[in-house]
Write a protein that binds this DNA or RNA. Structure first.
Lengths: 258, 258
DNA sequence: TTGATATAAATCGTCAACGATTTTGATGTT
DNA sequence: AACATCAAAATCGTTGACGATTTATATCAA
């Protein structure tokens, strides 16, 4: 068999999975039944999303609609809606009549994604350098300290989460929700790339680059901040070996054999 | 009544609107019935999209599902899918239990959109300047000539289409599909902004700026090309008067009275 | 006439079921 | 044993219908 869908949710512990008619007895505080629909939908989306970030859902994994229906106790219409959203964000690929799978970026797409990240983040760090407030720098340095603690953590997703948070914080400082959205999408696809091609990332090195970026931001040195961000993203891309991939369907075949 | 949905499609002349069961008699060449689903879906999407660009669908216009069902002879599931896609691209807003309307960017969103465009297009024009081939410059100058012809056309959407094509061509020369997608989304939202706030755009002035951008690209002057693109986008934004808006629901109310 | 209230219409969200397609597994032949 | 053919299971695409919510209309009192 192919890879199956597991997704033991951890972060958002356990939204009560009542979905049988109205609210059972409780006086239905606040939002009521209408919001429940969008809530369960958001919950499913978030669960898949987090699973991708944590590399529990790896590229090529099939997501059959009936399985998801049982997992979340919802009808297929709801699952379908979530899958379409995930497809639009390039997290899953919807193959007509053949089901949904977690997207597997090709080498060409990988180049495009990193190039787009450079184009965006260089502008983002410029905005952030111009706009940052004292408390922003404080929080960035706090994130750097936290990073330092995870630098030697062998669990890759832990470091990836740190790095993600760092880049996202800079985008937040830049203050443009649209750019934040675009960057979020690109970073999520990067986690797919990492899961696929397993780069031998040097966390300590990346951490040092992060620190330099913040230093330039603090100095208000826009040009250097831009340049450093560009270099950082290039080195990230250089760490990826498009040759030896962690196998997509190949792994599935291996599981068939082993 | 509120504004109703009309959408007389012009560009994609008239896809045969058969949708009754299978294909009637013709031997169903090529794609068959499976592709017909995605085709009609794409057709509906494209029709709405084009109508927004041509300002036949203006911000605030309601898009009731039953009306669209009759117009395109499809079930609600299909148009629901299209509406969700349009929502993700920020072209329509889906208000729970209250139906879909063409999105109406707020002044704040307008600022964000133009800022995002500057961030993106400055990087895009840099890539395009580095990568353009002789035939790219040729086509760009051809577009400029065509622009010149429409400069004095009082019909605003005609000029808007030209300008859009120009910016899109530069993105194509840059060669990154992801950036093309993002820019396309932002430009579409800009057409909503134009419909809403009706800027007193000076087409001749914009045309001159376009020409300067191409000149810098031809020289390979990256810095100047970036700067000129930034200036151009700023002047576009400056032409928009966020005060006097072309009314959203206000116009609907006026129609109720008149 | 104006305003509030109640009824009716329109619209949306959700679901279960049917048909079509794909994939899996079995059978038989070379 | 390997391959092709065929049947069965799983999965997806689409539809129509039901209940819930919102909006429009009509009625009545002040």
């Amino acid at each position: 068999m192919n890879q199956s869908v597991d997704m033991s949710n951890e972060s958002t512990a356990a939204v009560p999975q009542r979905r049988n008619r109205k609210a059972e007895a409780a006086p239905d505080l606040g939002a009521g039944v209408a919001a429940a629909g969008v809530d369960i939908e958001q919950h499913i989306y978030q669960t898949v999303f987090d699973s991708v970030l944590n590399q529990r859902l790896t590229p090529g994994t099939k997501l059959p609609e009936p399985a998801l229906c049982e997992l979340f106790n919802v009808s297929r219409a709801v699952i379908r809606k979530v899958l379409q959203r995930l497809e639009h964000e390039r997290i899953v690929e919807l193959r007509p009549n053949k089901g949904a799978v977690i997207a597997a970026p090709t080498p060409e797409e990988t180049r495009q994604i990193f190039e787009a990240r450079r184009a965006l983040e260089v502008s983002i760090v410029e905005l952030a350098t111009r706009r940052h407030k004292p408390e922003d720098l404080e929080e960035l340095r706090h994130l750097l300290d936290h990073e330092h603690g995870v630098t030697h953590n062998p669990y890759q997703p832990a470091w990836a989460a740190c790095a993600r948070e760092f880049h996202l914080k800079i985008a937040t400082v830049a203050g443009n929700p649209i750019l934040i959205n675009y960057l979020t999408e690109l970073m999520t696809r990067c986690s797919l790339i990492v899961a696929l091609y397993q780069p031998i990332g040097n966390a300590a090195c990346e951490h040092a680059e992060h620190r330099r970026i913040v230093d330039y931001m603090a100095k208000g040195d826009v040009a250097s901040a831009r340049a450093e961000m560009g270099k950082h993203l290039r080195s990230l891309e250089d760490n990826i070996c498009l040759d030896r991939k962690a196998s997509v369907q190949t792994l599935a075949q291996m599981l068939n054999i082993g």
